[in-house]
Write a protein that binds this DNA or RNA. Sequence first.
DNA 1: CTGAAAGCGCTTACAG
DNA 2: CTGAAAGCGCTTACAG
Lengths: 340, 340
Amino acid sequence: MAQKIKLSTIAESLGLSTATISLALRDSPLVAADTRERIKEQARAMGYIYNRRAASLRTSRSGIIGVVVHDIMNPFYGEILKAIESELDRRSHTFILSNHYDSVEKQRSFIEMLLQLGGDGVIMSPAIGTPIEDVELAENNNMPAILVARQMEGCDLPTFRGDDSYGISLATNHLISLGHRTIAMVGGTDQTSTGRDRYQGYVNALRKAGIEVDPELRLPGPRSMQAGFDAAVDFLSLPQKPTAAVCWNDLVAIGFMNGIARAGLLAGRDISVTGYDDLEEASIATPALTTVWNGQEEVGRLAARALLDKLADSHALDGLHLIKPEMRIRQSTGPVRPRS
Amino acid sequence: MAQKIKLSTIAESLGLSTATISLALRDSPLVAADTRERIKEQARAMGYIYNRRAASLRTSRSGIIGVVVHDIMNPFYGEILKAIESELDRRSHTFILSNHYDSVEKQRSFIEMLLQLGGDGVIMSPAIGTPIEDVELAENNNMPAILVARQMEGCDLPTFRGDDSYGISLATNHLISLGHRTIAMVGGTDQTSTGRDRYQGYVNALRKAGIEVDPELRLPGPRSMQAGFDAAVDFLSLPQKPTAAVCWNDLVAIGFMNGIARAGLLAGRDISVTGYDDLEEASIATPALTTVWNGQEEVGRLAARALLDKLADSHALDGLHLIKPEMRIRQSTGPVRPRS
DNA sequence: CTGAAAGCGCTTACAG
DNA sequence: CTGAAAGCGCTTACAG
């Protein structure tokens, strides 16, 4: 390649100053329209590449937004990210993505890296055990943070997530209305706000229906397809012989349906199964999965907007914003059939 | 927050020069060990944040690597990304991710953005129709590019992908050895090198076995679960009544298995189905999917290493590097059973 | 409407 | 072993 083209290269070639070039390239009305055009044309012709680092050093705005979630390969987060992406894209922000895999260290080093890069803000689904100092690190260094999908105790940051307790009670009530009385809860953990809320929603729904809560019917575990698949074995050997399973999410539910299928059992006929999230895959699964729509796109979109609003420093929308989940009834649930 | 801490803030507080601080923080042996410790301690205490933009402006190295693929939500790319991530992480590079969704424009604006940010290099799975100029744009501006999963004609850049033609012939031969003679190919497009190679591999395997190739048995389409699901309907109404389907990838195959299940047909018993990629989900699917391991982790890891090597400018590994696929036989394929 | 000059926060020869 | 000074490529008051 030839020599590096910079503002001053263009300026010299046109007999103008760098100030004029800089203004013209950013469409400033301070530069005469025809001068502006001439400059832009020349920049194009010379293959000029705007140096954002230099600009950002000067303006202390980088146009970079960080996003860190548990695992981008999980379609639940994928759908949130997609919404964030399309929202940021239209406002020409760059977004930098990272997984934290629930490692607080990995998450912290991401935040530090983002600060070093001069990130304008960060959207995060906090890792389990995130100390409040880690989000304060961002905030204190002028990098506002927005939380998605998970909540943090004692933290007033704008937070967008589904109403898990309510959502899971929809699923539980649906099963109860089909006549199920022995209902297991498969997957999840008490270590996240989501986990606690979902279990609580399940418990509340049972109690309200006058069904005794049996802690042994809870099969906690990871939130993956593989985990659901594995849990099927434990489920089938429970002495209580549950007739239905409220699964933590769609991935667990799909894995679980595959798991019981290996034992010759069909979801919706032999065992009723509900998911959570309403991923694209839910309606394709066989049988089609009864699940709870959890508003991932909504969460992503609102979070991105909240951040951009905060950067444009309009009014801050601190605190929790709950998205109302909705039931999606399909084929994986049906009237109770006693298990032999 | 208080006032911004920079090198000079630390320097003044310690009565040293910024040069010494800068060197000490980067562990230069030019600074006495105890001075170095004192400086680091002070930096920590003051909450100093290294300004990478400033450093990068000076050194013209940013530590940023761009990665752009069709769709990060596709687990095939997800597995490649995971391998790249773990490889880059250990060398403390930041990676910026983007989807191009096969839009050449979106891909180009990503490359331009990366150049503006001073990206050190880019790993890409080129969008359909990517003009050679777009990768040259990167290369000419001193940002080396590495290709993964897809090849570009007339382009000698280091490229890492599976041997698609060979891999699909493994799947086809497996079906032929089970007695299948009427084998459909489901999903895929001629617009990518991968698509052409896979179709060719299928055609070659059939010819070698003396089976006539019937173009109507090809059902091209997108490479998603939904597409496989939809294709099942077309497949079942083919007058040739194929007994087996070579699917473009695991997603298509899983969707396809679900699709035929809706018609009461079981993969492996009624119709034999093969996938491609050997995603984590393949072994969990019911029936477990017979598929072809395509070395995603291998592709990601090698690509990341090749890029880092190129940046450290050791020997360049230009040209095509094929990963040898391997057959994974599970339950979704079985001996031919004539369809009524 | 355009230009001269300072400064963003680093790193790197060059001195000492 | 440490310091003074220039410079990376922009943008932004400030003049004119």
